[in-house]
Each structure stands twice: as structure tokens, then as C-alpha cells.
Design a protein around this nucleic acid. Structure first.
Lengths: 197, 197
DNA sequence: CACGAAGTGTCGGGCAGCTGACAGAAGGGG
DNA sequence: CCCCTTCTGTCAGCTGCCCGACACTTCGTG
């Protein structure tokens, strides 16, 4: 069934006993995990056409992450029982879900690999490029990424100050431009050079 | 089809255009990724009954990681085309693979989360416990984990020296015992306290 | 339009973890 | 049995990143 979510509304929380798969009809959803002290890591940002919540759907276990609507959004949800019932009648649905899982696994293992192998500036450059590709909108000042530096920091597992430090450096060099709650990517190639492993 | 692998033999390498799913009949396989400079991250260690290589199987893309036989092993492999052909006749296979994907996603996102949120000692304690659960053998000196400190370090994305430093500290306190190429877990509860987030 | 909240920009001080280096112990293969 | 390789244990710098703090700007809202 379909229903709207307000901006900032929590769709489900890490640890919840949830078992529904959600699809985004309209809007943006952020997937994150946090610890008791309020520190947070971003796993992903999803947009229209994306699906999430597949882990709990598959094994019926607790939610591994928290999903929050970043803007007013419209979500389509299907519960575990209903999903598996549909699967019986429509086996091709499984293939679709498998494709989704493959994609998700690529993204997540990429995150883990980057975290272990890359220094902060390389990780920042890499995430900027990936997010730019997925959610950036073209603009006079470059490809716009509507994310606060705080959010970027959570994405990398570093502090806001460090993110600011590198962005400032790159701004000097003309690689990016900065606005309140936004980063403008101006020189993709320069950022790509930074991510060289 | 089934075939044996020698200890240390590479099953597939990161970046390869592989498209087969592998199952472990006998032996142990390590899944890792590396950068150009030879640094390496471990993602997982798998044993008999486990399956791996599902990402490339699902989307036909490049291997995200390298798989190496840690000991002499026997693997069962099925190519992409054969797998999807079987899937047509046996739709329940898809459910099995979906369950596997859910499991893998849980593990991988746990890795990414830990890397971002936990300090080195907490990560070390956590991985010791998880690996101990999956691959530890009971022994007079505790639960044995047959892994060099070098390998443990790759698992966490830190240096061998740091791993050694914490293991020494914990050995003093009687929480673990150390041998060449092995860690003996003696006090699970103490290690669990360290992982508290 | 005034105020509070949220975001940016910037600084020092401190420390966790890295680099490089070396010595000793424990296998393993010829 | 001996040599070579692998692994452990340890130390002394160095540095990347964190923490706390504060000023300034922008935006939303009553």
C-alpha cells in the first residue's frame, strides 16, 4: 500500500522488527545507522524508483539501519507475507529482487573497502563523485549536491571540520564550489585523480 | 562442476569478469579486496557449506573482491547461464539465494558500520568474537582462531603493530592467549564489554 | 521582522594510529 | 639438520584526524 511521509519522518529505525519492503514513488530517503552516543553513519541516499528494506524482508530479522524521509515522499510498501505470496504467483519478481541485492551488495562492500583502504580526502572525493552521479543536478555552478557538510561527514565517518577543511582546499583550486547545504562539483577529473588507489 | 584447489590458490581476482557462483564442499576461503600498493582488506572467511561469488553471478559485472583458498579446498561451481537455466525449472532456488544475499548484506553493512563508528580496539574485539563464533575451535587454551595478526589487521584496516599492541594488553589481563598464527579467546564477556557502542 | 536554529569557516591542542626498523622465535622444505 | 621464510614483539618518531570552542551567515517561523 502507498502512503505519504513528511520531510524528516522516520520510516523505520535500526533494531526495529520490521518486515516490509519499501519502494520510493516520489522523494528521497536516507539510510543510516547510529550508535548510542548519537554518532551516525550514512549508508546511502535513495531516490524515486529505488527500493529499500530488503534485508529485513528477506530474513525477517531486525532492521540494520534507519530510514528517514529527507523530503516529503511517497512510498509504496509491501509486507513480508504479501511479498512471498506474490512471489509464488510471479517468480520473475525474485529475479528483480536478486538484481537489487547484487546492486546493494556492490555499494555496501564498496563502502567497507573504501573505509579500510582510503584516506579521508580520497573517500570524500569518491563519495562526492558517486553521489553526484546518483543525485546531482546540473547547474550553472557545476553539478549540485544538496547535502550539508555534516551529512557528508557522517557518510565518511569523519568530522564535519575535516570535511570543511578539504572542501575549502578544493574550492581554492577551483575543483568545487560551496553553498549553504550544497556542494557544486566543477572539476570531476581532478576529484577522480584523488581517488586513485 | 566440482574441482579441488590448492592452499593459497586464487579462485578469482577482484576486477575479473567472472560469472560463476561457488560453493565450498570442503576447506576455507578468504574473501578480500586490495589496492595497487598491496594493502589488503579482508571481508570474510568462509567454510564448508558457504557460498560466494553471488554479486558477479547476479549482475554479470566484475568481481568486487578476490577469493583465495586458505587451505586445500574442494569447490562446487555453477556458471551464470547454467544457474539461470536451473532457476527456470526450480524457482525455489531463488529463495535460497535471496536468503544468502540477506545474510551477506547483514555482514557487509555490519563491517561498514563498525569501520565508521568503532575505534580500533572495539573493532578488534568484535571481529574476534564474530570469527570465533564462525570458525573457532574449542581447545584447552580457549576458543582457537587460526589467523595471523597480519590477517587480523587486514580485517580491521589497521596495522599489524596496533593489533599486536591490543592483543598484548588483553593477554596481560587474561582475556586472550596468543600463539604463532593463532589467537585463543579466553574471556568472551570481557571482549563483549569492549564492543559496547 | 526579530529571533532561534542550523549551517559554515577556522583555530589550537592532544592523541590514536601509521611508518620504518629491528631482533628473536617458530616452522618448513631441501 | 640447517637455512630461509614467516610471524611475533617492541620502540621511537611523525601526522592525520578528533575535540572543543567560537564567530559569522543564512534560513525558517512565529
Amino acid at each position: 500500500m502507498q502512503r505519504p511521509y513528511r520531510s524528516g519522518e522516520i520510516i523505520f529505525s535500526q533494531g526495529d522488527a520490521g518486515d516490509a519492503l519499501h519502494g520510493i514513488v516520489r522523494g528521497k530517503v536516507r539510510i543510516s545507522a547510529g550508535d548510542a552516543d548519537g554518532r551516525e553513519v550514512f549508508f546511502n541516499i535513495l531516490g524515486a524508483g529505488d527500493t529499500f528494506g530488503e534485508i529485513a524482508l528477506l530474513d525477517g530479522g531486525a532492521r540494520t539501519a534507519t530510514a528517514t524521509a529527507m523530503v516529503a515522499s511517497e512510498l509504496l510498501s509491501i509486507a513480508r507475507a504479501a511479498f512471498f505470496a506474490t512471489l509464488e504467483r510471479e517468480p520473475r519478481l525474485a529475479l528483480e529482487l536478486l538484481r537489487l541485492c547484487g546492486e546493494r551488495l556492490r555499494w555496501t562492500s564498496g563502502l567497507a573497502e573504501d573505509a579500510a583502504l582510503l584516506e579521508a580526502p580520497a573517500r570524500l572525493a569518491r563519495r562526492l563523485l558517486l553521489l553526484g552521479e546518483a543525485h546531482g543536478e546540473p547547474d550553472a555552478r557545476g553539478i549540485v549536491l544538496r547535502l550539508s557538510q555534516e551529512d557528508l561527514a557522517s557518510f565518511l565517518g569523519v568530522t564535519r571540520q575535516l570535511v570543511n577543511q578539504y572542501l575549502q582546499e578544493w574550492k581554492q583550486r577551483g575543483w568545487v564550489d560551496l553553498g549553504r547545504g550544497a556542494v557544486f562539483i566543477r572539476d570531476k577529473t581532478a576529484l577522480e585523480r584523488l581517488t586513485a588507489r
